[in-house]
Design a protein around this nucleic acid. Structure first.
Lengths: 102, 102
DNA sequence: CGTGTAAGGAATTCTGACACG
DNA sequence: CGTGTAAGGAATTCTGACACG
């Protein structure tokens, strides 16, 4: 079900290498609610997915354009909702196809 | 090009959680040449891909069946070669299709 | 051969805070 | 608001070795 892209397995150091963002920035964007890594172990170290890495790249672009984190957050939430809707429509089609009346 | 599945980004602790194998075992299978994580940083810590994780799961099964690491290694090498051949055949087909004579 | 474990050191990550702007 | 940095501590990872079998 959960694909490799969504699986939270990457530590913050690697994410930093992958995105070119500082640890501080990555943690700050989490604090602002733009990303939600998983917490693991006693120390509570963060684990990110490739999807998170992609999101961070988008965030980096927006920030370079001067967009504030609060704005970026709104955009990200909107995108997530749209994805939601798309998935629900697809599920609806599938249901309609297989059991028109249950 | 390199998909998420092949990208070496997972630390050994996470791999251990994902596979249920001890750190010792994971390192040992590397020593025997069954897997080849990437080394990063000064400390030279290991980074694995999801593909490595899958390979480790296969290895775990074989080991439970009592197969020795030397045998498992042969099997893995064979599988890799077969993949190689398949890919080359596909490339051949594509080439044949697009430029029969160059 | 395959795996566990204790050992000492190095690198990673965490949090809360002060700084600048 | 967004980011850097020094600070102290905790958890992770590394290697080489001894142990058992």
């Amino acid at each position: 079900m959960t694909s490799y892209k969504e699986k939270k397995v990457i530590s913050i150091g690697i994410v930093s290498e992958l995105t070119g963002l500082s640890l501080r920035k990555i943690r700050y964007y989490e604090e602002r609610g733009l990303i939600t890594p998983e917490r693991i172990g006693n120390g509570g170290s963060r684990r990110y997915s490739f999807a998170d890495v992609e999101t961070l790249m988008k965030i980096a672009e927006k920030r370079e354009e001067g967009v504030q984190t609060s704005e970026i957050k709104k955009e990200l939430v909107k995108e997530r909702n749209q994805k939601q809707v798309r998935n629900q429509m697809i599920r609806g089609q599938i249901n309609a196809h297989f059991n028109i009346r249950k």
